[in-house]
Amino acid sequence: MIWRLAFATMLVLAAADKRSGYQDASPETRAMQDDDASNPGFLWVQQGETLWAERTGNAGRSCADCHASIRGVAARYPVFDARLGRPITLAQRIQQCRVERQGAGPLAPDSDALLGLTAYVGLQSRGMPIQVSIDGPARPFYEAGKALFETRQGQFNLSCAQCHDGLAGQRLAGSVIPQGHPNGYPEYRLEWQGMGSLERRIRNCMIGVRAEPFAADSPELADLELYLGWRANGLDVETPAVRP
């Protein structure tokens, strides 16, 4: 156990050792991500781009009517929302805008429309380093997320940290265990045969260790995403990434 903790600490300290899941993917999967014309994630980006410009809701406003440029925005999420008094993910911000500013109904979680909008916004930060802030009021939520990451859970009694800090780079069956950085979401996952969110990925991990997954949009997931974002600081945004 001690060596695992030591290894985990080393990983967190040495930013240069941060590895995007891209580096652990096969050359074929990387090539699929590298070429926008063959990256299926762009089917969702295309949908998001259309929705971005579409006037909707009681306000009859489009996203583009208010937001001229969203370059770099996705690289900072999750952010602390002062009014809510807690961190909010990019998808939650998009939902908030829809409901409060556009007067439209929220999109279904993990729907193609929400994934598309999030991917479109994410793409505007592609190539920019993740810069998630845990300063000031965000700090306790970061601590909560970190604690969740390090808490053993489920029938297998495993924490996120045991695999993604302690055993990253080693193999689980035929696959390399990645460090688990959220730098490409929403991402096109070959396993899903489609696009999916970080929340979906985390829920799958929890099912994998036989734990009860956190509910969609639960505070736990936002805290965990805040911790994961901070942990990935400095890695380039790859949205829409392609992963096995």
Partner: peptide, 8 residues
Amino acid sequence: VKLLISHP
């Protein structure tokens, strides 16, 4: 020419 179609 490259083509992608969104279809399950």
